[in-house]
Write a protein that binds this DNA or RNA. Structure first.
Lengths: 301, 301
DNA sequence: TCACTCTTGAAAGATATTTTCGGCTTCTTC
DNA sequence: GAAGAAGCCGAAAATATCTTTCAAGAGTGA
């Protein structure tokens, strides 16, 4: 990926909090302070000048501008405008009731409500932050690929398998690898005209980077689905699709929301590909549906 | 609104168009041009500098500032911020246009928006429809189980694996079966004190019903996660957790939304169990996290 | 400990906004 | 119809704000 890591052309509409979470790990301490202040109180920060925000966060103007840049804006001025917009939206949208973390003693009904809310939030963030240009490019690459290899370990492995299942159903040749050694072994076979997809939340899972690197070196078109677009995996990816990161707590590991985010991206890929290959995809879809019908008991009543 | 018409201390929130109409008669010609531009295209004007807006309206910077003052802002800068807020509000106001089905010729951005919206809807539906009593009972059964077997085929198999991964991470003995024959073979081993979970959207997948029936007959506590609580699988289930079904279309098979729904249920189960077994779950969670740390590249920044 | 890189803020430099000020138009009055 | 007055308007100066540069300091690995 040649262009800078922070994502697509459009600055960022409303998913600022999500972007802050995504980018925070790659920020320096001072920049994190600024980002935190901005995410925590958009309305308040929108009222401040660079100097004001610098003083509030105990940093310098330069750092504030740097943070604005990292978040995808040309400068502080534009960040400030976005902040004003965000504040207005929050104002009209009103408070979301269940923002608290899940606690050990929460009644089960609260758990359901909080989880559902958080996952909805994750979906909204992901959709807002997803770079449609990169997505379109990835769709194009996969739709025309002779063969598609998918890499993922741990929780991401399931997402990879989900993608593989879907692609197989519309007649594409896709395979999800879970064994890192076999993945590398197979990646050697890839060449131009093939595609490889790596799924890793951290962006730095060696077992996933390695096969993608091999695929990349052999000329295959490579796609990374990761929550850390600035992570090491991106250097071997022709197209990077960013998943969003929700705040996590002790009881709810990051895997949970990253999975939701990854699945949305995978679904988008799938639909996009199905659109492009509609002529072959549609019959394949109904064929696989028919084939399954007899596995279900006829008497469902 | 108690204060006089042009607003006292507070600048003005969103009723800008109205204010322009009210104040227009008392404006000079040039100022009217500016006010008109601002009211007509808040988003566009928010992107302009004083100079830009002056040129656009064929006036001067001074006039623009004067207009801003008349509208109740300390200067153009503040008017611009208000404009950005207004634009954002208008933007978010026209969101729910995405209820339609996904069509073959939808641009990729629409696909993303529609998918995200639909999955959010599915989550809300599932959470609302989920029977917390049944859920609580299922949590109790799993938390105290000696051994947990999970059945699912096709797309549901991935959900089952997800659940198994999670339960294993908090120290429970769980296994997700995908091979129907092996599933039945293993189900014979189950007895009172064990638990079995079957996941099937249709509620009538023979390959999943059969092992659950065997587990049920052998005295294990059985749980069914299904979108058809009236389906045949329920007769062998001690507890039935209902997933919701979203409408599907040609391009979007049912598997997509049922998976989202199933995963939410699985997550709720997991959190519930983690709460009940907190003493052992918490250390196990952090232990598995530590174990993974070294698989990631150290230099991520 | 040293050499190195990365981070950071002070201050210079560039832009944007606000103010000033004088020309111009328009209206009023004789 | 002309002179005067009032107020509108924009060019340019003055100020505030934002951006960039650069060197010192903090942290890190050898």
């Amino acid at each position: 990926m040649k262009e800078s890591f922070n994502g697509g052309a459009p600055p960022a509409p409303a998913a600022l909090a999500a972007k802050v979470r995504t980018l925070a790990p790659s920020m320096t301490r001072s920049m994190q302070r600024v980002a935190e202040a901005v995410a925590g109180d958009p309305a308040g920060c929108a009222a401040l000048t660079v100097t004001g925000l610098a003083e509030l966060t105990g940093t310098s103007e330069a750092t504030v501008v740097r943070t604005a840049r990292l978040l995808g804006y040309p400068g502080y001025r534009d960040l400030r405008l976005a902040l004003a917009g965000l504040a207005a939206q929050q104002q009209s949208g009103r408070a979301p009731a269940v923002t608290a973390d899940i606690a050990v003693d929460d009644p089960i009904a609260d758990v359901v409500a909080k989880l559902a809310y958080d996952e909805q939030q994750t979906l909204a963030d992901t959709a807002a932050a997803l770079d449609t240009v990169q997505l379109g490019a990835a769709v194009g690459a996969l739709a025309g690929a002779r063969r598609i290899d998918i890499y993922g370990v741990g929780a991401s492995s399931l997402v990879g398998q989900d993608l593989a299942q879907k692609l197989l159903r519309i007649g594409l040749i896709a395979h999800a690898h879970t064994d890192p050694h076999l993945a590398v072994t197979n990646a050697v076979q890839l060449r131009s005209g093939d595609a490889a997809v790596a799924i890793t939340h951290s962006g730095s899972t060696g077992d996933v980077i390695e096969p993608l690197r091999v695929a990349f070196d052999h000329g295959a078109t490579t796609i990374a689905i990761t929550g850390r677009p600035d992570g090491p995996i991106s250097q071997y990816a022709d197209h990077v699709l960013t998943t969003s990161t929700a705040r996590e707590s002790e009881l709810r590991p990051a895997a949970m929301s990253s999975r939701t985010s990854q699945l949305l991206v995978v679904d988008c890929l799938f639909i996009g590909i199905a659109q492009r290959t509609y002529e072959t995809a549609a019959p394949a879809l109904s064929a696989s549906y028919e084939a399954l019908a007899h596995r279900h008991n006829p008497r469902t009543r």
